[in-house]
């Protein structure tokens, strides 16, 4: 019984060192699904809602708008599509493990990329609010001696965001894999006296991993997506408030 915990499988390599892995394929599939879902949800909207589809679409938009209003205030209204995108992408990525796809958020590159986007947003919002000088001055507060710590703190934001998402998803999948392997070992140990293929019947792998998967994939996945967008909104609105 070999247990292997590795990153995404490399499907093929392109020149310039570009590798196409399972992560990319999963991401494309997820993007396609989200795009089609959006298109399907909004394909014939009416002023008086007649279909349940439209109610769902409006509920999604309104929920995100209300959340944004609560956390960031009215002036970040244009931020809503980004937050919705981020949430949808993270949720679908976390749940894609359920459908046998490789979860893009279990790849550090993906979460790091998204966290870098969020970091750029935080930075640009901060600079837009305080100006470059104000931002650089903010790094030296409260005293000049703290500047290295502040710089590290600035960079810790995207790193911790990326690591949080990645760590949660990966720990879920690692624990699932380990448990699965352990249960396989247990069932083959229990059934080892039986002849032939009967020894390979996975009696323990049937129910227990499903329960764990509900926690790690569904609950934790949605929760981490929520936390990711909440942190994004909190950081950006914090950056927008001048010091």
């Amino acid at each position: 019984m070999e247990v292997s915990i590795t990153g995404a499988r490399v499907l093929f390599r392109l020149p310039l060192g570009i590798t196409i892995t399972e992560t990319q394929v999963s991401m494309w599939i997820i993007m396609l699904v989200i795009g089609l879902l959006c298109k399907w949800l909004t394909h014939d909207l009416k002023v008086k809602p007649t279909s349940r589809r439209q109610v769902v679409a409006e509920t999604i938009v309104n929920t995100i708008n209300n959340l944004l209003n609560d956390v960031m205030g009215v002036r970040f209204k244009d931020f809503a599509p980004f937050v919705a995108t981020l949430f949808a992408f993270v949720v679908f990525s976390n749940l894609s493990g359920l459908f046998g796809l490789f979860s893009p958020t279990a790849d550090l590159n993906t979460t790091l990329g998204w966290a870098i986007v969020v970091f750029i947003m935080i930075l640009s919002t901060n600079i837009k609010t305080n100006g470059v000088g104000g931002y650089l001055k903010g790094l030296t507060e409260p005293v000049v001696f703290f500047t290295p710590l502040n710089v590290i703190g600035e960079f810790a934001t995207p790193v911790s965001m990326a690591m949080r998402l990645f760590g949660n998803v990966l720990s879920g999948s690692v624990i699932s894999t380990l448990l699965y392997a352990g249960l396989a070992t247990l069932s083959s140990f229990v059934l080892q006296k039986l002849p032939g293929f009967l020894a390979n019947i996975p009696i323990f792998q049937l129910g227990i991993p499903a329960i764990l998967s509900i926690y790690f994939d569904v609950f934790s996945g949605v929760l981490q997506a929520f936390i990711f967008i909440m942190l994004t909104m909190a950081y950006v609105s914090n950056a927008a408030s001048s010091e």
């Binding site: 590795t6 911790s160 949080r164 760590g167 690692v174 929760l223 929520f226 909440m230 909190a234």
Partner: peptide, 26 residues
């Protein structure tokens, strides 16, 4: 929602240690 946000931030150190653990193993 505030609690979840706070928990997420508090969890950071745990995540860091997990990353260190994973780095050490793999």
């Amino acid at each position: 929602s505030t609690m979840l946000l706070g928990c997420a931030v508090a969890e950071t150190t745990g995540i860091y240690s997990l990353i260190i653990g994973l780095l050490l193993i793999f």
